[in-house]
Design a protein around this nucleic acid. Structure first.
Length: 321
DNA sequence: AATCTATCCAACCGCTTTTAA
DNA sequence: GTTAAAAGCGGTTGGATAGAT
């Protein structure tokens, strides 16, 4: 017999929230904050489980929620972040002030996925789809060589959300030089980490850099000015540096355009010129340009050749910050 | 007008991670 | 160090609605 939820066990109310319930929850949190969620329903006079209250607050009642349709900039950003992070909805949503992970996830599943497929991009991998035939004529060989066990795209840690006040912070768990750095002999070329094609594939990266799960001393961002978005921009910058035809215009504004902007609205503004056509043009151009150099699995279509390792180093980064 | 189908999105479920005792 | 509770997360479901037939 299936395990029942906490709401079932306690015979609590489930389903849609009534305006009265919303008001009770809002009033309670406005007065006392949520504190321990499990105690919220009791204190607020609700016959709900704490989990349900938390979800309702986070996804619907929070005053800082934006709601409404996603802007083009938000859409572009979601696609881009998804290409780096995969289905890490909470991390993606953290870069979109006023948006929830649930909202982003729903938007992705109901809208973006469809549009990507219509344009011959696999939403899961951001690679060109094997079909239809028109695509296959160009990408067939590449697709055939991608093993089923291809590692999914992974991304560098994005620990801290974009604060709503627009001040970005350094991801706290960013790999730091000297912390569990693998022996030099286990590293490719140097103790700094090389990212294949500039696309973060942490599974491959970990294997590549020693296999013990320790991410090597790759990047030491400035604690004062680096940000999650800047980090992403850096990753893209590296992509850009090595990819002909796979341009992301907002990055060409340089890191300061992102770092100085300070919040996603400005960041999104830098995305103004990035549109679907460019995204796909870039994707296809990149893939097409690699007909001579087979694209390894798990790599972004707009990432670089696999023989071009992208070298992150402290000095390079310091220029960014 | 009635019915069917597709889409959207709020909410639930179950799992993992974190925290506190 | 162990355990239980709480929090967080991603996948999935189901109801409401819009559009098509």
């Amino acid at each position: 017999m299936a395990k029942q939820s906490c709401c079932h066990k306690k015979k609590l109310r489930r389903g849609l929230w009534s305006p009265e319930e919303d008001e009770k929850l809002m009033n309670h949190i406005a007065k006392y904050g949520h504190g321990c969620w499990s105690s919220v329903p009791k204190l607020a006079g609700l016959e709900r489980c704490g989990k349900s209250c938390r979800l309702r607050w986070i996804n619907y009642l929070r005053p800082d929620l934006k709601r409404g349709t996603f802007s083009q900039e938000e859409e572009d950003l979601i696609i881009h972040l998804h290409s780096l992070l995969g289905n890490k909805w909470s991390q993606i949503a953290a870069q979109l002030p006023g948006r929830t992970d649930n909202e982003v996830k729903n938007f992705w599943n109901s809208y973006i996925k469809k549009r990507l497929r219509e344009r011959g991009i696999d939403p899961a991998t951001h690679q060109p789809l094997a079909e239809p035939a028109a695509c296959r004529a160009v990408f067939g060989d590449v697709v055939d060589l991608i093993p089923a066990t291809a590692a999914p795209l992974q991304a560098p840690p994005l620990a801290d959300p974009m604060p709503l006040d627009g001040v970005t912070k350094l991801p706290l768990d960013w790999p730091v030089a000297g912390a569990a750095a693998p022996a030099p002999s286990t590293l490719p070329r140097s103790s700094s980490c090389y990212l294949q094609g500039g696309c973060f594939d942490m599974d491959a990266l970990q294997q590549h850099c020693g296999g013990g799960g320790a991410v090597p001393a790759a990047v030491v961002p400035s604690a004062s000015s680096s940000s999650t978005l800047t980090s992403l921009a850096e990753a893209e910058h590296c992509n850009n540096a090595n990819v002909a035809g796979a341009t992301l215009p907002w990055l060409e504004l340089g890191p300061n355009a992102v770092a100085d902007a300070g919040h996603v609205d400005s960041y999104a503004g830098a995305l103004d010129e990035l549109r679907w056509s460019e995204y796909f043009d870039g994707a296809f151009q990149a893939a097409a340009s690699q007909q001579g150099a087979l694209q390894p699995a798990g790599q972004c279509v707009y990432s670089g050749k696999d023989d071009v390792a992208v070298h992150f180093d402290v000095h390079g980064l310091s220029n960014w910050c």
